[in-house]
Design a protein around this nucleic acid. Sequence first.
DNA 1: CTGAAAGCGCTTACAG
DNA 2: CTGAAAGCGCTTACAG
Lengths: 341, 341
Amino acid sequence: MSKKKVTTLKEIASQLNLSISTVSRAINDHPDISESTKINVRKLADHLNYTPNIFAKGFRQHKTNIIGVIVPTITHYFTSTIIKGILEEAELKGYRVIVSESNNDVNRQTEMMHTMIQFGVDGILMSLSKMTKNVDAILQTVDRIPCVLFDKVSSKIPCSQIVINEEEASFNAIEHLINIGKKRIAIIKESEFSYNSEKRYAGYLRALKEHNIPVDDKIILSCNDISMKEGKQMASILLSMKERPDAIFAITDGAAIGVIKTLKKFNIKIPEDIAVIGFSNSIHSTIIDPQLTTVDQPGSRIGTTAVKYLIEEIENTNDTLTSKTIEIKTNLIIRESTFKV
Amino acid sequence: MSKKKVTTLKEIASQLNLSISTVSRAINDHPDISESTKINVRKLADHLNYTPNIFAKGFRQHKTNIIGVIVPTITHYFTSTIIKGILEEAELKGYRVIVSESNNDVNRQTEMMHTMIQFGVDGILMSLSKMTKNVDAILQTVDRIPCVLFDKVSSKIPCSQIVINEEEASFNAIEHLINIGKKRIAIIKESEFSYNSEKRYAGYLRALKEHNIPVDDKIILSCNDISMKEGKQMASILLSMKERPDAIFAITDGAAIGVIKTLKKFNIKIPEDIAVIGFSNSIHSTIIDPQLTTVDQPGSRIGTTAVKYLIEEIENTNDTLTSKTIEIKTNLIIRESTFKV
DNA sequence: CTGAAAGCGCTTACAG
DNA sequence: CTGAAAGCGCTTACAG
């Protein structure tokens, strides 16, 4: 592939009989340079289609204006909306974004952090892969380069974290079920190693407690790798019980949709016999019939917020490193699976 | 943010009493260097956690090992599966990926190509934004740097293009409808400026022709910005006709799902009264009830193939530039919306 | 087998 | 207001 020869400062300087330094300053609008020189330089630069060699620049300034993003899976709708937010905000601030998928593999995740650092990114935005138990590698990274965690975070890591109000959102969802008269509310959650799942579970427990509803372990179901399939299985288990629940809270929309599919198969009336609530407000939630009541997670806002905090940290030269945890508010979207019009 | 001091070749050289050149060669496994030196250098490099400064390297070698990707919208499931494929293959080959969204804005698209070139990407992978009529900017880019188009392509651009067999896939979908006895098949498509839509429409026309079914313009509906909403509207229009169709082919799953929702609202039996086919095999197609017959587009394969061709072009030093168009095969996935078990 | 030196394109403290 | 020079970290032709 033959690339066209590319314009450099040297080229412009020689054509204008100026020094490279002057041309550099003129292009960067340095106050020392006379207006007339600036005009001449800019004109020729435009004409020759000059674009600075970012590598020489980044190399010189130890700054690349690239942000690295590591997520478990890019194909989840929620994740892709976060990335959308990241791209928008980063672009606005003059940063480019390198994206990587860890596929929920902790080793890949570690490797990716290293490659990103090696690529000279200015900072890293990361959503942790499942089962990230050993955080040593991450601690090292946080120590070397600005990092912000989002969505799947860990309190063991000293850096800013952007999350949603998981516990409260879940509390509100359960309270809504109680308000519509439900008394025996099942939950389908993940194992205790999932940060998000535990928070949502905590909200569930608090809601029951505050409304004096006894907790029944039999209708608290955990599964690994929660998805539509698990939702179906858990729904079958719940239906087979002597004392069926009158509402099911699945901590992901996927599982909630699996639940609805199974309930429909057994001709259970939704929400009259059993109401269903999910979590995420994925697009699926309006495709399924009845449409799913769920918690809307503003992915795009999470993304833009994460970028804001990261860039602040990148550009903040003084050494005060305050790691904040920012909670993005969610909304309960009430639809047919809990509310009959 | 205080960054730890980073290990350089110089540091290693001085600790080992070697020259920088020798250390550089040892690390790059140059044949000139003795095995013992290599071992020493590697050991210390590991110990000091040495990672080459990619910017110095890229700057020196005019190669960044970064691929730029520009897509209209990242949040479309199909697009995100393509990106997944791109990330996998790129990583395998030692490349990183910068992603950008054009949001279907031609100006943004042009700007992004420029920024990417400025960032020194080795090549660009692009899916064209809608209404890319003026391809001048793209022609310029193609001239400066290896490019491969995928999914939304244009025959006006001389570079390799990775597409699916749109026309044939659509032909097969229509033929399936004919095989199950349908005789009056409507199509919901986009305007004539959409490459994909036009190809699918061509397949529709050919199938009708080969089966001697007359074409009726009244049941050929076009809309801009096709989605679920448009699917609902078009379905209403079709239902209001004296001569209703007995099958509807929507060229996107979103529109097909809108169609199904409207048909259900009017208690039309699917597929007996009206069968429905979509295009993409998005996850929605198994959420909706009845499940949607649709064309599976292997997004991940499109992504990996695009990367393969791009890297071939990047690494191919000789000047023979052969632009091929590669068609990735699709499959018709038959489900309840056309076939009653 | 190893080293000294030039150079990639840019910025910036220093000098005038 | 402008220029000469050093240097960012690396690779590589040249010399030994």
